[in-house]
Amino acid sequence: MMLSESTRMRSAAEARFRVQARNSTPHAVKVIALDADGAAVVRRLAGAAWAHATFFTAVPGVRLQADPLDGPADQPPPRLRRSAEASATAEAGSHVDASSETVLSDLAGRLRNLAEEIETADLIVLVAGPGGHAQHATFIGQACSRQRVMTTGFIVGAASASESSLSKTLAQVRPWSLMTVIANSDDYIDDMMTALRA
């Protein structure tokens, strides 16, 4: 009997003729800790070898001001200096957006421009713990929404969290996450990053 095309094509024999060329280019995944629990996970995660992932923390309470004395005005973007409430660990760097209420700090403590980091991202992963201060999710989420960048919210340490603390974090993260993950074990994020080719 003559096999139908669908029957022939689903066979293991035909699977051998699938095109072997690469079918994607690397995706840039940027992982941002929103609070202290998130920062601990992000630091651990950054210790592994990732080809296409970069790691940040959202810096709490930082407002940045343009320094008019720092470089000629016709060389954008201007260098910036941090205001007094900036974290002592964060080192001021270039390309930081003075208009933003939230900036990012890489794991070496250098401040990074939120909008620029999002512009070059394919996926933003927001990491927060229950009951933390995840209010930066709003600014980051708005920026992602403007740039049409996918967001994933990852709640760490949920297994032992109270309902009220989980609710608090969800209220902050949910509106800005197109996918929210609540895992009992923080090592899930490693598998997720691998699965996403980070």
Binding site: S6, A12, M150, M192, L196
Partner: peptide
């Protein structure tokens, strides 16, 4: 089933490009 069978008897997962909405699948495997 038509689409799942079209993947071949055992789909080659080394070639897939999962996205964030696939977290259900990723976590199930995990």
């Amino acid at each position: 089933a038509s689409l799942q069978e079209s993947m071949g008897p055992i789909v080659d997962r080394t070639k897939e490009n999962l996205v964030s909405t696939d977290n259900g699948i990723i976590m199930a495997r995990h």
